[in-house]
Design a protein around this nucleic acid. Sequence first.
DNA 1: GCCAGTCAAGTCCCG
DNA 2: CGGGACTTGACTGGC
Length: 320
Amino acid sequence: MIVRLGYVAMSVELKNASPSQTMTFKQFLQIPDREAAIQKLERIAKNNLTNCLRLLKHNVANEIHFFRFSSKLIPLANHEELSDWKYMRPLKEILQEIGHYLQEHPIRVDFHPDHFVLLNSKSTDILNNSIKTLAMHEALLKGMGIDPEHRCVMHVGGAYEDKEKALEQFIHNWAYVPASIQRMIMLENDDTSFHLEHTLYLCEKLGIPLVFDYHHHLANHENPEWEKEWDRVVSTWSLSKLPIKMHISSPKSEKEYRAHADTIDREMFLHFLHTIKGSVHEIHCMIEAKKKDAALFQLVEDLKGEKNITWLDQSSFEIQ
DNA sequence: GCCAGTCAAGTCCCG
DNA sequence: CGGGACTTGACTGGC
């Protein structure tokens, strides 16, 4: 089984390369000239995308083939007071530049909008805003010339005091989600409300790939034996052009179990891999650690010399 | 130049 | 039912 490692959004190694610089609405209102304020937003967005390109180059230099973009690339893109702002126009060139770079240096890229994007809300306002935010993600991918299919990881959403009802609400709302956005989505089991079986239920019913988060599963499960459902998880990827992906992180501490540690616990990761090896040809593991790319490099160091592992490059290996 | 506080979002918890 | 915590990185203001 081939394993490729990726990391999230920003680098702790590459300096002054934040892809998430921002302006709050409050700051926006403090600039008296609205045009000037919008130009500042556009400068920030362009700068964020330029930093994304720098991050991609950093990834290529380190043979990393898997990367999650920040979802904060365009500050206030979805704000209701800025609905007249055509934010995509000034970004066309830099997006194309990123697209060209990705054609020459293929890296699997995707997004993970933060959990204010809720597809199972009963409120049409929240649902419509969520769809709007997803449409922004779609536009960014298209601007880069990337097929948006299965490029956006989401959580199921709010529990709203009744998880079974909340799951049915997701199915109900799904019909109102444009088809092009539906096909962008992957669903992840979360650490407080919707565990693996909940998420599988939706994924199987709606044909959505499931991104298994091992740490979330340890924090939130009904049945601890995820292995029994693993084949079902793999099956949700059968229609995808992309290899199965999962999230890997380690608890910060026993007390702050759900919080992410700086780095990845080697033993936990190896245990997981040995459990699933043979079930798929290739798996992509997204490292979600405080230390971002440094945690990935650390994990690679920690796995060096491990028997049954043959390194393919700086971030990929084959495990027997 | 560092540290504490602020900001944004929707949900959830507590009183 | 209302206010604060939660979460995360960026940013601001005070010293």
